[in-house]
Simulated scan of single mutants.
Amino acid sequence: MIKDENKKHQYYQALLNKDSKYDGIFFAGIRTTGVFCHATCPAKKPRYENCTFYETAEEALLAGYRPCKRCNPLFYPQELSPLVKQMVSLVEKNPEKKWRDSDFAELGIHSATARRQFKQKYGMTFVQYARARRMGIAMKTIRTGEKIINAQIDVGYDSSSGFHDAFSKIMGRTPKKSNEFKILYADWVDTKLGPMMSIADEKYLYLLEFVDRRGLEREVERLRNRLNASIIPGKTNISNCIKEELNQYFDNKLLKFETPVMLLGSDFQKKVWGELVKINMGETKSYKDMAISIGNAKSVRAVGNANGANQLALIIPCHRVIQSDGSLGGYGGGIERKKWLLNHENQNRNF
């Protein structure tokens, strides 16, 4: 999401003028209609305060906007092949669907060809696009949803429950009723590095991730299955607490997170995460150092895997682990975010 006010006003003026030089440069999400457009959209122009601007279509999709049917922003700038048009149309007909190779085969489409053509056009794979559209539905529900009193929840997600069927398909249907059944609440958090999602109950925070993380759906599914839980839109004291702490963190007013968390993982993973929280802001450790600190110098790769399994971004600071040669290594939230976070923490370690 673009936050620079000058750039936002520039893009809004381009939208008003239908300036073709800006087609493909930005996408405008229109809050009143729930669609996103490119600069030359012929539809009636929205008010400035109802616009959110994005640099990529994937960002707009993840924010919950659907492609405008008037300007077809996904069909710009060059003409699409019939195959890519067909794939986009299929997603719009069934946006909550999780696509597999077998689905392509049933349609007589070679999956490798589909992936290549889609990647060339949009800079993201078809699976990424379908995921962004799918997750966007869930994220929009999370952004606008109200907390639902437990007594009102029908554990079968029937029509009387009030939940959208698409949301339950994306975030996972409720498990079979049992005494262990648990309700968790998902909330949206805007940050300087992009939106994040928190999942919490009234006691603990279970997940905090950037919404564009590739493995987010799998993380949500593992969490839901592990706790025999249903995840619905809503806020709790814990989700409000982490939102406030994140604001403080990005405003250089927080050195350590205090929100109560629940760590769900193997003993080894918890051991690694325990060492991660000991790394102070502004400091880094190598994967090898981490392996040594847990008493097993040969477990470098396992340490890396434990980092990747972390479901509490920033709180369990896996971004503070780098390669022995000083290079950044991987990060689930993306290398650019990791670089930004390390610079941010290094500059503000002694505020």
Rank of each mutant, 00 (worst) to 15 (best):
M1L: 12
H9W: 06
H9M: 11
Y11I: 15
L15S: 07
L16E: 14
N17M: 11
D19Q: 06
S20G: 06
D23A: 11
R31M: 14
F36K: 15
T40E: 13
K44D: 15
P46C: 14
R47N: 15
Y48M: 14
E49I: 10
C51Q: 13
T52W: 12
E55V: 08
A57L: 07
A60L: 05
L62D: 02
A63F: 02
P67C: 01
P73M: 06
L74C: 11
F75G: 15
P77W: 08
L80W: 09
L83A: 03
K93S: 04
N94D: 02
A105E: 11
A105V: 08
L107I: 03
S111H: 11
S111G: 05
T113L: 09
R115W: 12
F118E: 15
F118T: 15
K119G: 06
F126V: 14
Q128V: 09
R131N: 10
A132D: 11
A132M: 10
R134P: 03
R134G: 03
M135W: 09
T141W: 00
T141C: 02
R143N: 01
K147G: 00
I148R: 00
I148A: 00
N150W: 00
N150L: 00
Q152C: 11
D154K: 11
D165Y: 07
A166G: 14
S168H: 01
S168V: 06
T174M: 10
K177A: 06
S178W: 02
N179D: 12
I183A: 00
I183C: 00
L184C: 01
L184K: 01
T191H: 02
L193P: 00
D201G: 03
E202A: 04
L205P: 06
Y206P: 03
L208H: 09
L216T: 05
R224Q: 09
N240I: 01
N240E: 05
L246P: 07
K253P: 06
E258K: 15
M262G: 08
M262E: 07
G265W: 12
F268V: 10
K278P: 05
N280A: 13
S286T: 01
K288A: 01
M290T: 10
G295L: 07
G295H: 08
K298F: 07
K298S: 14
V300K: 08
V303P: 07
N305C: 06
A306Q: 09
A309Y: 12
I315P: 04
I315W: 03
P317C: 10
P317W: 12
I322G: 02
Q323Y: 07
S324R: 03
S327N: 05
G329R: 05
I335C: 04
K339S: 14
F351I: 14
